[in-house]
């Protein structure tokens, strides 16, 4: 499928979803002439209009057979492996986000660094384990000790 055409279609879909959500904005008697939902509606219709116009322009150009597909170059020229790789990275990050509060900051960050390195084909060995735990500890010192951020204690809370 043509990339620009897909872009326009996704834009249209976002506009529709946004307008649908904007319909739920509560009205208020203290409202002004524009209202809380005024600007969201305007933005939603604008995005819908621009996206549909984009799709139309693209479709006409394709039909005339003189539209070259926009190439962004680099990794995106082969989209399937690029998306698959990104999905893997996102999954690891999502796992980190879910783990953070239950297991605590230190183990979760060590896991994140370790998993991402393994995902990038770094050899699993003692050095990597050391880098992951050492890195997590350094970040913990930086944020939790030096900057006094309340990082989740997780499983450590019971041990202390």
């Amino acid at each position: 499928m043509d990339r620009d055409l897909a872009c326009g279609l996704i834009g249209t879909a976002i506009a529709l979803a946004y307008l649908n959500a904007a319909a739920d904005i509560p009205t208020s008697a203290l409202g002004d002439t524009v209202g809380a939902a005024g600007v969201p509606h305007l933005l939603g219709y604008a995005l819908a209009a621009v996206s549909v116009a984009f799709v139309a322009q693209r479709a006409i150009a394709l039909a005339r057979g003189k539209a070259a597909e926009a190439r962004t170059g680099g990794v995106f020229d082969d989209p399937v492996p690029a998306f698959a790789s990104a999905a893997g990275t996102v999954l690891i990050c999502a796992a980190f986000v879910f783990l953070l509060e239950p297991v605590g900051y230190l183990p979760a960050v060590a896991f994140l660094i370790f998993a991402l390195c393994v995902y990038q084909r770094v050899a699993i060995n003692a050095r990597l384990a050391l880098i992951a735990t050492g890195g997590a500890f350094a970040l913990w010192l930086l944020f939790a000790v030096l900057l006094s951020v309340r990082m989740p204690a997780g499983i450590w809370a019971e041990m202390i």
Partner: peptide, 22 residues
């Protein structure tokens, strides 16, 4: 690979410290 892993670790640590929110 190490740089990428640490960038994400740093970014998430920083983002968490704004509101202590997952």
């Amino acid at each position: 690979p190490l740089l990428m892993a640490f960038i994400l670790a740093l970014v998430f640590s920083g983002a968490y410290s704004i509101n202590n929110s997952v």
